[in-house]
């Protein structure tokens, strides 16, 4: 699993170097939704199966590259009754350096940092035990291809490490659509 992680890290560094700074910070924004295919590679699959996963984010231009906030939701099904089902909400902040490609497409690579919130479904747990949160970090890359007016298709890959005592390591591939627009003045004033 170190291979995709290394590739993403190299992409992150290279794109960061070549990414240009924006004179028009916050001028353009976009919102996106995506379906995620998630796999875990550090033993969690011994106890739980990963079921549905989907996410969405808001992205805008930053001083250098783009910045976004988003959420990814994933459901986990216990393989035995003693392993309660749980769901996770990964609330993150990400930064990507972006380089333009032919056909108005673009490629970005960067990093995501966020809080990985877990909610366990069991009647025997108290509210303190039912909820858990942990830091999650990982490299991230995305390819965007405009298809119609403001609409684009996105394909992305990411590696997430959740810093639990025995860390959880996810590799996610996602596909989705995004809608781009000029950032409203009131929103730009909030960002500035």
């Amino acid at each position: 699993m170190n291979k995709p992680k290394t590739i993403l890290a190299i992409l992150f560094v290279s794109v960061s170097i070549f990414s240009q700074s924006h004179s028009n910070t916050f001028d353009k924004s976009s919102v996106a939704i995506s379906y995620i295919k998630s796999t875990e590679h550090n033993g969690l699959d011994t106890y739980w199966n990963i079921e549905n996963s989907f996410g969405g984010y808001f992205q805008t231009q930053f001083y250098i590259g783009d910045i976004s906030v988003g959420i990814s939701h994933t459901s986990f099904k216990g393989l035995k009754t003693k392993y309660p089902d749980f769901s996770s909400n990964y609330i993150y902040l990400s930064w990507i350096g972006v380089i333009d490609l032919p056909l108005n497409s673009s490629f970005g690579a960067g990093i995501k940092i966020g809080s990985y919130l877990m909610t366990f479904e069991s009647d025997t747990l108290n509210s303190f035990q039912k909820n858990e949160s942990e830091l999650a970090v990982g490299p991230y890359a995305i390819f965007t291809l405009p298809v119609f007016n403001h609409l684009s298709l996105n394909v992305s890959g990411e590696f997430i490490t959740v810093f639990t005592k025995r860390s959880m390591k996810f590799f996610n591939i996602s596909a989705g659509v995004s809608y781009s627009f000029s950032t409203p003045d009131w929103l730009k004033r909030v960002f500035e």
């Binding site: 106890y47 392993y83 877990m118 366990f120 858990e132 942990e134 810093f163 639990t164 959880m168």
Partner: peptide, 16 residues
């Protein structure tokens, strides 16, 4: 928060 919570592993023999 400080990292190193057990997460879901708290329900397994690998609890911490």
């Amino acid at each position: 928060n400080e990292v190193g919570d057990p997460g879901p592993y708290v329900f397994t023999q690998e609890r911490s």
